[in-house]
Structure formats: structure tokens, C-alpha cells
């Protein structure tokens, strides 16, 4: 079972995950702004910027993160931002938002000039996350694990990052056993999503180039 220390450690991460959300004034624009590819492009770009700021605020609260070398902090955030944001968007889209926000957001994404070949893997990822029915602690910890992935470009001190990621993986493994007793493969399935995220990350760079051209 989960030790007292792990419990406290997890609480810090989950509290931070809940505290740092995209501000209301940004999300409510989803419903207000009128509807065109340009409008959707601007709105999605604004939401992405806000999501990066939220991600950094969340990451600052990950135990030990601020004790890492400053440039390594930047390299970790830069290397994982897109993946962490896709993970967060998937979680938001898979928990039914009130009065149709999910449908509106999905429609905007589908009508913002993003190429179809990128749309499919992105929405497939959202579906696969939705099917996992992750509890909040799992979502928060998986996001933290994604950010603390040592092998990102320009990260110098890999062992220091591994020392932070290791306890998180350990707690996540225990959580999965606790919340999904009849699914021994659940933890492995979660980590499988991280691989899928890396592919999405690769697509994302290509998608941005074509999106800008559109």
C-alpha cells in the first residue's frame, strides 16, 4: 500500500494539478467568439499559451523540480510541454464538460485549418485516454512523470531527473493497483500512452508547419 510519505507527496502534486487550470476568461471565449478558421486559430493559440503557463505553475510544485539546474528545468519543460498539454487536453475532453463545451471545443479544433492527417491520431489519442478512465491522482502523476522524462534534448543531468521521476513512477504503480485491482496490466497501459504521446509530439511539429501555411 501507499506509505504516509508517498501520500503527502501525491497530495502536493494533485492539489497543484487542480489549482492550476486555464483561467475562466480564456475558456469562456470558447463559446463566445464567432466561428471561423482564423478565429479558431487565434483562440486555440491563446489557449495553448495559457496552457503552457498553467503547466509551468503546476511543474514548480513537483517536489524537487526547482532544485534542478535552471537550464535543465527549461529543457525539461520545453521538451515535455507539447506532450503534457496533449495529455491534459485529452483528460479535459474525456471528462464530459457541462452543457456541450466538449462538442464546441472539438468543433473548433476540427475547423481551425489543422490538417486531417493530424486530426485523426490526435482524436484517437483523446479516445484512448478517455477509455482508461483515469482517476485524478493518476492523471496528475502521469503528467508529472511525462515532464520528468530525462531523455529530452539539452537536459544535462539525467540522473538528477531520474531520481525525481523514480518515486513518482513507484506511487503511480501502487495507485494503479489500488484503483484498478482487476486490471494487472493497467500501469503498463498508462505507460503505453506515453509512447503514443511521443508519436503525437512528432506529428505536432509537422502539423504546426502545415497549419501556419494554411
Amino acid at each position: 500500500e501507499i506509505t504516509k510519505e508517498q501520500q503527502a507527496f501525491m497530495k502536493v502534486i494533485v492539489d497543484s494539478y487542480n489549482r492550476h487550470q486555464i483561467p475562466q476568461d480564456v475558456t469562456k471565449k470558447l463559446l463566445q467568439e464567432q466561428y471561423s478558421a482564423e478565429e479558431n486559430f487565434i483562440l486555440l493559440t491563446e489557449m495553448a499559451t495559457s496552457q503552457v503557463q498553467v503547466l509551468v505553475e503546476f511543474t514548480k510544485n513537483i517536489p524537487g523540480f526547482l532544485s534542478l539546474d535552471h537550464e535543465d528545468q527549461i529543457a525539461l519543460l520545453k521538451g515535455s510541454a507539447v506532450e503534457a498539454m496533449f495529455l491534459r487536453s485529452a483528460q479535459v475532453l474525456s471528462t464530459k464538460m457541462p452543457n456541450g463545451h466538449t462538442e464546441v471545443l472539438e468543433e473548433r479544433i476540427r475547423n481551425s485549418g489543422i490538417s486531417e492527417e493530424f486530426m485523426t491520431p490526435m482524436f484517437n489519442f483523446y479516445k484512448s485516454i478517455g477509455k482508461l478512465h483515469m482517476v485524478q491522482e493518476e492523471q496528475a502523476l502521469l503528467t508529472a512523470v511525462t515532464i520528468l522524462t530525462p531523455d529530452r534534448p539539452f537536459v544535462k543531468d539525467h540522473p538528477a531527473v531520474e531520481r525525481l521521476q523514480e518515486p513518482m513512477l513507484e506511487v503511480l504503480r501502487k495507485l494503479c493497483a489500488l484503483h484498478h485491482p482487476r486490471e494487472p496490466q493497467y500501469f503498463a497501459r498508462l505507460l503505453g500512452r506515453l509512447t503514443e504521446l511521443r508519436t503525437l509530439n512528432h506529428y505536432h511539429t509537422e502539423m504546426l508547419t502545415s497549419w501556419r501555411m494554411n
Partner: peptide, 21 residues
């Protein structure tokens, strides 16, 4: 690509945030 530079700027500014607090 320009966006990555933009991304790094947003990250640096947000990280600096704790120095102002």
C-alpha cells in the same frame, strides 16, 4: 521553428514568476 522559441519565452517568463513573488 518560431513557435519553439515562443514556447521557451513563455516558459522562461513563467518560471521567473517565482522570483518576483
Amino acid at each position: 521553428p518560431a513557435t519553439n522559441l515562443g514556447l521557451e519565452d513563455i516558459i522562461r517568463k513563467a518560471l521567473m514568476g517565482n522570483l518576483e513573488e
